[in-house]
Nucleic acid binder design. Structure first.
Lengths: 158, 158
DNA sequence: ACCCTTAAGAAATATTATTCCCATACAAAT
DNA sequence: ATTTGTATGGGAATAATATTTCTTAAGGGT
């Protein structure tokens, strides 16, 4: 499926602000609301738009501490990996979870209230997974965090 | 400001799915739509709800590669740090950016199409910041990624 | 009992989303 | 050149939803 300039503009708009009405969006991209609405429908059905969510204030909700957890393991068979992915993903505190190339095997971002809360989490993690080589790195400050994908710059003409 | 169980339920709901109508939300938390709507307004005005966004499919948009960049520096004065934060935040590819405790000073998550695209980014980053100690770690697989905060479990009675 | 505050809900209204119908542009086929 | 099909846009009507308005009930303090 092909995305033209207008589609990209709409995606850029909607990933930055989803409160805006179809009519207002239409104006911004130079369409009337019907074709604009249809394009967004199409982007949703084709999966470019995955979901609509509200972003909450982590600080206000006492979840201001991000901890990055590096995991090394010597278990490398597929079954173990699947099981491990399953178990770790269950934890709501684990908001990001990657399998890595290089130095360590997995990287987690864990979101907690404070250090003691992290310690609680850590103990649960260890007992659930029997990991041994786990390094925790604490973030002091979140300088930037965005859900906006770096979309390609729009071409002037098509 | 105090959040009761219903507020937390609403936050949990809306951070998971913002397409749902006020009426449907109201049903789920056992309210009629007016008080439900008012609670959400209140949560927005008080800042618990920061914004409403659409989440796009990074794979489909050819932005499937996450690179974690660890930065060490010996510059530690406040002016330099402010300037650095500014410059790095400008890059749209930098979707997360933390100041860290411990081993390294900063951690970035950079979102790119592929390795060559990362190399392009890397060169721009280096020339913009004059950094020397930079380690790049590539994610092979994104096992979990969510914007949903781990909200406290709801209490049975208040 | 009385006042005051807080929160709920029903109904009315305003706004927005969605559908329906038609128009235009362009390309391929005859 | 005319036709036919396909893709895209837009105006107007309708349906759904958000927002306001008004009213009621419950609890706490005097």
């Amino acid at each position: 499926m092909h995305l033209d300039n207008t589609d990209l503009q709409l995606l850029a708009l909607i990933q930055s602000n989803d409160s805006i009405s179809t009519e207002a969006m239409a104006q911004q991209v130079g369409l009337s609301k019907t074709p604009c609405w249809r394009r967004i429908q199409r982007l949703e059905k084709s999966g470019y738009i995955k979901r609509h969510v509200a972003l909450l204030d982590a600080e206000k909700l006492e979840l201001g501490v991000s901890v990055f957890v590096q995991v090394k393991t010597n278990q490398h068979d597929a079954n173990w990996a699947t099981e491990f992915a399953q178990v770790v993903s269950q934890f709501p505190e684990v908001v990001e979870f990657y399998r890595m190339a290089g130095e360590y095997d997995y990287l987690l971002r864990v979101l907690v209230k404070d250090i003691p809360a992290y310690d609680q989490f850590y103990k649960r993690l260890i007992s659930a997974t029997a990991l041994t080589d786990v390094t925790s790195n604490f973030a002091m400050e979140q300088i930037k965090w965005t859900t906006e994908l770096p979309l390609p710059q729009l071409t002037k003409a098509e």
